[in-house]
């Protein structure tokens, strides 16, 4: 089922100034429930803007964003005619019902950022509290939860992002880069969002750090069955960790589907100048040299399997 749905989204910065710039142009995309969706594209392809549309940080200049079928930017006025027919509002006096609808829309707007949790790029730069615990608690506190619930949330967030308990009373500024990033991610996970959006979660980390953070994200998704969106420009990571993919180029969505479906259009990815995984390049070279292996291989595991089988077949035909 579609958790999030973008319909004909357009977004333009600084309209009417010399700096006018179209970040998104007629983008339609679907993000399915209980999956990890990768959004890939160049810097300037509109990825980050698209993520900020999902939790209402920016409003699209054109088009609609639906979360569970609800247009997140709808105003009470637009909803009156429809909602007044709903059973919960039908029995009220019209003015009371309108007031109630207005309050409901307000409530949803305010709650949106807690339902769609966004971890921005280099999130370690947003840490500000004296202790890791307090920093992770910032989101839950803004949700108006009780001390007890906040505590539970902080531990929940810390557990999923791989922070040990002894770090909680430390100052976030004394931690290493990778740990800081984890604190920031924990701060969003602690809000228990239905959708977790991560913008370049592994940027600047070394290979081990990358692998750990992606594994933690995967583990989080698999155990909570929530919707996770990862933005990245690393095709190698996307191929490895994402179930679905959306490809953005020049402010447009040019492909969407399962990772396999998207990689099946690999030549198109090449055309828009995205870095296709090294392993895919290698397989292509082999095909050109007359080695009969399928074209769309994008993980090392798959390549090992195929080439091993290829070798076995050669050996088999020999005997």
């Amino acid at each position: 089922m579609d958790k999030l749905c973008l319909e004909h989204i357009g977004y333009t910065y600084s309209v009417g100034t010399p700096f006018e710039y179209t970040a998104l142009d007629d983008v339609t995309a679907h993000i399915r429930d209980d999956r990890i969706t990768g959004v890939i594209g160049h810097t300037g392809s509109g990825k980050s803007t698209m993520m900020m549309l999902l939790n209402g940080l920016v409003k699209p200049t054109k088009g609609k964003v639906y979360l569970d079928g609800y247009d997140i930017n709808s105003t009470a006025k637009e909803l009156y005619s429809d909602w007044l027919k709903r059973p919960e509002y039908q029995n009220m006096r019209k003015s009371t019902a309108k007031k109630a609808i207005k309050a409901e829309v307000q409530r949803r707007k305010r709650g949106l950022c807690f339902r769609v949790g966004l971890v921005m790029q280099y999130p370690e730069y947003q840490l500000f509290e004296e202790t890791v615990y307090k920093d992770i608690a910032y989101g839950p506190k803004n949700m108006g939860l009780s001390e007890e619930e906040i505590r539970e949330r902080v531990l929940y967030g810390a557990r999923f992002s791989g922070l040990s308990d002894d770090l909680l009373e430390k100052s976030p500024f004394d931690l290493s880069g990778g740990q800081k990033r984890r604190v920031a991610i924990a701060g969003v996970i602690a809000m228990k969002p239905e959708v977790l959006v991560l913008d370049e979660p592994a940027a600047g980390l070394d290979p081990l750090g990358r692998e750990q953070i992606f594994n933690e994200i995967r583990q989080y998704q698999r155990s909570t069955h929530s919707t996770v969106i990862i933005v990245s420009h690393s095709m190698e990571d996307m191929a490895e960790y994402c179930d679905d993919m959306i490809v953005l180029a020049h402010s447009k969505a040019i492909a969407e589907g399962t990772t396999a479906e998207v990689f099946a259009q690999i030549s198109m990815l090449d055309e828009v100048g995205l870095d296709i995984p090294q392993i895919t390049q290698l397989i292509r070279m082999l095909r050109k040299r007359g080695i009969d292996v399928p074209e769309n291989v994008y993980t090392v595991d798959r390549a090992v399997e195929l080439l091993r089988d290829h070798y076995q077949a050669l050996k088999g035909s020999q005997t």
């Binding site: 070394d206 750090g209 392993i279 090392v300 091993r308």
Partner: peptide, 20 residues
């Protein structure tokens, strides 16, 4: 030590381990 080799080098290593 927390480093990895490029994908293609990894492939060669793994194929060798698989007896190729």
């Amino acid at each position: 030590v927390g480093l990895e080799v490029p994908q293609c080098a990894e492939l060669i290593h793994r194929l060798r381990e698989a007896g190729v």
